[in-house]
């Protein structure tokens, strides 16, 4: 069995036995890679406790000769960036996991994914180290990058159903089913068409082109709804983490029975 080395971002990990893990990761050269890491749950293992979701590192593994559904055998995993900042608050954790879930769904085994890898790496870096106010823009930028790498970029210039150019598109109707904006004629016959504000469209276009923008609350909510519908249409299901991307639900505060320290 040849030994290969590749940079990988861990997407999902499950316990396999008392001491072993199975990990799904995204790589540039091999697309989605499934490995078993024997002994990874032991305190002193060559995986250094780093084989965890959202960690980027260098993975050394034995390549199986055949059987594409078999697990490759991981030998070492040397972390390059643990994205520790992601673990500092729930908003970052949930956005990071959302990207991991999306990458799991959009990637294929043995299908090189350099663009998806770079979009995910950049997104996780921004989520881990960026200011709280920029988290949603970082998420949407990375999400659009992953979608584009899978050939699913929303069409924002001209009608997605016909050859009508930008001049014939009012720019206010988006259809997840059509994959982008619709001209006035096609917007009328599409039940999935939804109005989009000019601000949302402008932000979406800017983020799609890699331009940093600040998202106001209303725009952020519209963008989220639009992308949720888009992802749901193309995957045929909602992502588990999509429910966790809104504002953190405020915890209902009921006071304790008596002031602290009041007991004898």
């Amino acid at each position: 069995m040849p030994i290969l080395k590749t940079e990988a971002i861990v997407l999902r990990v499950i316990d396999y036995s008392e001491t072993s893990l199975v990990a799904w990761s995204l790589t540039r050269e091999h697309g989605r890679l499934h490995v078993i890491a024997k002994g990874a749950r032991r305190p002193r293992s060559p995986f250094e406790g780093a084989l965890e979701p959202l960690v980027r590192g260098e993975l050394v593994f034995y390549r199986k000769k055949k059987a594409s559904d078999a697990l490759e055998i991981a030998k070492e995993f040397d972390p390059i960036d643990r994205h520790s900042g992601l673990r500092s608050d729930l908003a970052r954790v949930h956005r990071g996991l959302y990207l991991a879930e999306l990458a799991l769904e959009l990637s294929e085994r043995e299908d090189p994914a350099p663009e998806a890898f770079d979009a995910l790496a950049r997104g996780l870096h921004d989520l881990a180290s960026g200011p709280t106010s920029a988290l949603d823009a970082a998420l949407v930028a990375a999400e659009l990058g992953l979608l584009a790498a899978a050939g699913l970029s929303p069409l924002l210039e001209g009608c997605a159903r016909c050859t009508a150019g930008a001049a014939n598109v009012s720019g206010v109707v988006f259809s997840a089913a059509a994959g982008g904006l619709l001209c006035d004629r096609h917007a009328q016959g599409d039940p999935a068409a939804r109005p989009v504000s000019a601000g949302t469209l402008k932000s979406l276009a800017a983020l799609q082109q890699g331009t940093a923008v600040a998202l106001r609350d209303g725009v952020q909510r519209d963008l989220r709804a639009l992308l949720d519908a888009f992802v749901r249409h193309h995957l045929g299901k909602s992502l588990r983490l999509s429910r966790y991307l809104g504002a953190q639900r405020p915890v209902r505060h009921r006071p304790r029975r008596s002031p602290r320290g009041a007991h004898a």
């Binding site: 990990v13 406790g49 965890e52 979701p53 959202l54 673990r87 608050d89 729930l90 954790v93 953190q248």
Partner: peptide, 14 residues
């Protein structure tokens, strides 16, 4: 001290 453990601690904190 794992990803899941840290995420759980954040939920507890909230």
């Amino acid at each position: 001290p794992t990803f899941d453990g840290d995420a759980t601690a954040l939920h507890l904190r909230a």
